[in-house]
Design a protein around this nucleic acid. Structure first.
Lengths: 321, 321
DNA sequence: CTGAAAGCGCTTACAG
DNA sequence: CTGAAAGCGCTTACAG
């Protein structure tokens, strides 16, 4: 049914070796032959059979994309953006995006193991970066290439893409002060201690220090609105918030509006993850550009031997609501 | 390096044919031989090479999972749930989940075309169900199997999984009236006309009619809060809302709280897609069970010739916040 | 510059 | 119940 290189060879009176080489742009084949072969291939609607190629190459033309086990619902929005960027670049390289995702660490490990041993996948992208990750151990011991989204913890070293979250924290803070004329921005963090939270806070603290203002950091608990209310009442001067993510930001925003129906407050969150049904012109978000992060991850994974980038930092953009 | 069936055959003094058949549980091989072969395979850490198998079988052990082009950020949460359910079932069948996603319809089409012709993928799941979808046309003309998440438009017929959205609408309405003692639930729809919106509204209207109450349907625009405010003020009797999705629900909820700081209102949304940072005990959501929908999609795709289910309806669950 | 041949690791019709 | 052989569609070392 589907044309093969054998069909092309027969039609042209060439050997399959020559056709194969011509299609792969092997320099040993004359330019003219290469051109002719490609024309005939085109005319016959030739499509390479990946399974055959992968078998000879002992390597699948797939990249395994690994989801974290206990992801917060919040982050799912980010993942689909990453997938888009990754797949765009994979398609351009005639690669396939294979997903590994599971409810438990064991499920994911088994999934990845199968990708390595049975499917012969040699390249992976992790949509997260955790410490003491058994998946990373597996990838290392199998000597396959991988890139994480998010930098490794201190002391660890591997390929990764990330934002500059210190700058992102600083930019959000400056945006509030310079563009929106907020006098005393507060930093709202979650009760987690993710590396990016720490970095954004560092950026905030730096900008406050540069502006010679007193920083105020407030930890927003998951399930206790009264703490938020109390904080708002104890800080009547507050006219702007840098929140560690959009959800934390929106929560503070709404509590504030309930307590001070008349007053305005400007909020900057991170991830640009909220539908506009939920926000208004006083809510802003730093877009971390997940599409570009996905693209960058693939670039790292496929970089030629000559360049040896260890990571790519993707720039962020502040979105007006 | 990796053991092959040849290694097993050599070690046991059998032919590769016998080993292959034994591993595939072919009845023509004695039970004893089958058991022994499997033991040796286990001992050698044998892993089947998918590329080799796929080449002989003329079919990849992959399912293509296709994302919609213009998805709302809102829905991403749902997609990741689907992926989890799909992958769980694929792993159990030793299948791989391959993703097709793109910025444009052409990109996705090209991606799917490549999956069919080059990767030889014969089974697909679409995470959406649109009318006049060129992807569906392609899948049909290539005679590959596919399942959509969401029922096809009237007049169309193919395999699908879905919720019973009429019942989901009715259940949300009853929940408000019976459990939460809401006297006059209002239905808040978006400005879109998705089939599931229409169905949920139908369920709402039915329950209101059964309860001999006057239905009130309110269309929430994307970017105009004043319309929401006006509606709330014109309907002072409103003490509960069935919202077509969580975002619409949360928006109405917040507007209401701003206008009536003292009063409580109960809201039921759909998708269980909001992190608890944003909700409280008066916000409820109908969980559409994306994990189970994903699992069901795979089951449909792999159902034996004997049963010919055309669709699977997955049940929903109302979650208290 | 081109070709004949071997091989990648499976499955399965054919033969006994 | 088991085996020898062909074949799936590629790539590439070896030869010329």
């Amino acid at each position: 049914m589907m044309a093969t290189i054998r069909d092309i060879a027969k039609k042209m009176g060439l050997s399959v070796s020559t056709v194969s080489r011509a299609l792969n742009d092997n320099q040993r084949i004359s330019l003219q032959t290469r051109r002719q072969v490609k024309e005939v291939a085109e005319a016959l609607g030739y499509q390479p059979n990946y399974n055959a190629r992968n078998l000879t190459n002992q390597e699948a033309n797939s990249v395994g994309v690994i989801f974290p086990v206990n992801n917060r619902v919040v982050d799912n929005i980010f993942y689909v953006g990453l997938l888009r960027g990754i797949n765009e670049q994979l398609n351009a390289r005639n690669y396939v995006l294979a997903v590994a995702v599971g409810e438990s660490s064991d499920q994911v490990l088994e999934n990845v193991r199968s990708m390595i041993n049975r499917a012969q996948i040699k390249r992976f992208i992790l949509l997260y970066s955790h410490v003491n990750d058994p998946v990373i151990d597996l990838l290392k011991s199998a000597s396959v290439e991988f890139v994480t989204v998010g930098k490794p913890a201190a002391g660890q070293d591997w390929l990764y893409v990330d934002n500059d979250n210190v700058e992102a924290g600083a930019d959000g803070t400056r945006y509030l002060m310079k563009k929106l004329h907020v006098s005393t921005p507060v930093f709202a963090e979650s009760t987690n201690d993710w590396p990016y939270e720490v970095d954004r806070k560092t950026g905030y603290l730096r900008e406050m220090s540069l502006a010679k203002k007193s920083p105020v950091v407030f930890s927003v608990p998951d399930n206790d609105d009264s703490v938020v209310n109390q904080f708002i009442e104890e800080n009547p001067q507050m006219d702007g918030v840098v929140a560690v993510d959009d959800y934390t930001g929106l929560k503070v925003y709404h509590r504030f509006k309930l307590l001070h129906p008349g007053r305005e407050i400007e909020v900057v969150g991170y991830n640009n993850s909220l539908p506009n049904e939920l926000t208004d012109q006083h809510f802003h978000s730093v877009d971390l550009n997940p599409n570009e992060m996905g693209r960058a991850a693939v670039k790292l994974l496929f970089q030629p031997e000559t360049e040896k980038l260890r990571h790519i930092i993707v720039s962020h953009i502040i979105q007006k609501s």
